[in-house]
Design a protein around this nucleic acid. Structure first.
Lengths: 341, 341
DNA sequence: GTGAAAGCGCTAACAC
DNA sequence: GTGTTAGCGCTTTCAC
């Protein structure tokens, strides 16, 4: 009998099941299940027999069947705002780092994701029976009454979700970091281009407060938008109405890029005439074109904390919700300099 | 008896099943199943009864059970290279547009996704029993022998996957577009900063060919990298070794951003001294800082084609693989100008 | 139109 | 240690 390689299995042959593996290995199906789930109560011999059979058959356990029988999917759902907001990338890696030990999968959905099928990403995940949810976006109204499964809210602490833990970078602290950096360079006439979300508000608050302690009142502009275009528009306005400004803090790196354009268009130079500081430490910030001083939210750590909080709920079910605050870090590059005169 | 709102269901009460819905609506479970799947063979009366019961109970069908019983998940998996390569965003939207009519879900995974649990994103999707796969990245070795389910390869046509259709933007044509634009502006001394992947190679080929037809031979640099840093590094080198160059074509907008930095550092101006053209029409290109002339791959349309190809395989199972080529479009902004002298 | 019944491929008690 | 036995919550013939 010819050895059949897994990939040579004819396309419409039924997939091998745990039954087939058991037969081929000469054991029972529950023994196969045990091997699959890494039980220690299996003799080495039989274990290898099973593993060989699995390999020969090209067997892949059905997640659907496992989820149905086991009453858990081993997957947690992450709801993000927009794929273009890249902060979730580091966040996700942080999560995976700690989820690795438990073999838990992650599924990601943005707001418009599968909107043609599910009422919302949350609905989609709940139908999927995820074991937990991470809301890495502004919470939606439907979350107001809580989520039926363990949940943590990430990247935001202005809003709340009943019963959900929180893991976030301390944006308020980060705003202070930016302020103190500019202050330390001697700046006194300072503008801030802010955005709409909870993070932007926190950053703004922290920034204002730190400046206030030094007796400085910044000029603040913005109408909610957080794009490069918004940064451009408002910085231009800022420069027009307050020509004496020597430093600008943008609520994120994209807006800082827009600010850089406005500064350039005004015939000024960064950092000679105007110091510029962003937030996020995105690839934009490290680009050679901007070499932007910025604040790093350390999102990998935020992801680690979020995952740990979720695992704690899986295990223990502690009652009171905990707030994990991660301390951001200033990253100094070439876009800030001492104030002149 | 008090009306129980769905969300007031106590956290560890068992989820309502199709059984509970049937009982409450006074029908059989198969009738509920029919309503769920939108069958027309149900009287309006009973349909409303079922719908009411569903709403009252806060019932959500279990995808796991449906997948197991129905032998299909109604989900297709999309494998991308890296979340930071944003071309997949428009691509995904295009896919969803056509998948909407069929109520099919999409799941996304990047290369490192769940790497702690699955051997590869492909493995993960196969274990999940997706109904189809879209490979929106360079195919990996494991795909060399084909994928067990309907598949389409997107964004690439240099490599192949046995049995998989192809949907991609015509990168070669796009390269020609860039070349002809520069040629039309009178440029003759032209540099090209290229990258490693299949797309970059195609763009390069199309670019070279169009220039050759005009008797122009470009200076080509690059070593595989495609980041802003790579664009910076190689453009600097280009400018050093070939000071007479009046135009640069970068294989993507990120590299073009790096190129812009190098040009600026060399004391030159875009577009006065050097015209610059990118590829992708990313947010970078439309930024006020770059105002970059670029080539739009029209990825939304590529996504639509990919989804259609997959649906065709679901339905018909045509045998020969088809190649869908979408024609890119030139987007002229402020970074290109007539050659001087 | 509607209901009954037989699984889908697993996991988890439990008995051996 | 290993095998047996029930289901998990659906879809889907097939009768009625």
């Amino acid at each position: 009998m010819a050895e059949k390689s897994p990939s040579s299995r004819s396309p419409d042959a039924p997939r091998p099941t745990i039954y087939d593996v058991a037969t081929r290995a000469g054991v029972s199906k529950s023994l196969v299940s045990l091997v699959l789930r890494g039980s220690s109560n299996v003799s080495a011999e039989r274990r290898t027999a099973v593993e060989t059979a699995i390999a020969e058959l090209g067997y892949r356990p059905s997640q659907a069947a496992a989820a149905l029988a086991g009453n858990r999917t081993g997957t947690i759902g992450v709801i993000i705002d927009d794929y273009r907001n890249l902060w979730f990338v580091d966040f996700l890696h942080g999560m995976q780092e700690v989820l690795a030990e438990r073999g838990i999968r992650v599924a990601v959905a943005d707001r418009s994701f599968n909107s043609h099928v599910d009422a919302s990403p949350l609905e989609g995940f709940l139908a999927m029976r995820v074991d937990g949810i991470v809301v890495a976006s502004e919470p939606s109204d439907e979350m107001g009454r809580g989520i039926g499964v363990p949940a943590v809210l990430a990247g935001n602490r202005l809003q709340q979700i009943p019963g959900a833990d929180i893991a976030t970078s301390d944006d308020r602290f980060g705003g202070g970091l930016a302020a103190n950096h500019l202050l330390g360079l001697g700046h006194r006439k300072i503008g801030h281009v802010t955005g709409g979300g909870g993070s932007a508000r926190e950053r703004c608050e922290g920034f204002r407060e730190a400046l206030r302690n030094a007796g400085v009142v910044p000029v603040i502009v913005g109408d909610g938008g957080t794009s490069e275009q918004d940064g451009f528009r408002f910085t231009r306005q800022l420069l027009l109405t307050h020509p004496g400004i020597t430093a600008v803090f943008a609520a994120n790196d994209s807006m800082a890029m827009g600010a850089a354009a406005a500064i350039k268009d005004a015939g000024l130079q960064v950092p000679r005439d105007v110091s510029l500081i962003g937030y996020d430490n995105s690839p934009l910030a490290s680009s050679n074109l901007l070499r932007l001083t910025t604040v790093d939210a350390v999102n990998g750590e935020v992801g680690r904390r979020a995952a740990k909080a979720l695992l704690a709920r899986f295990d223990g079910g502690q009652q009171d919700t905990v707030i994990n605050l991660v301390e951001p870090q200033l990253v100094v590059r070439g876009s800030t300099a001492e104030a002149r005169e």
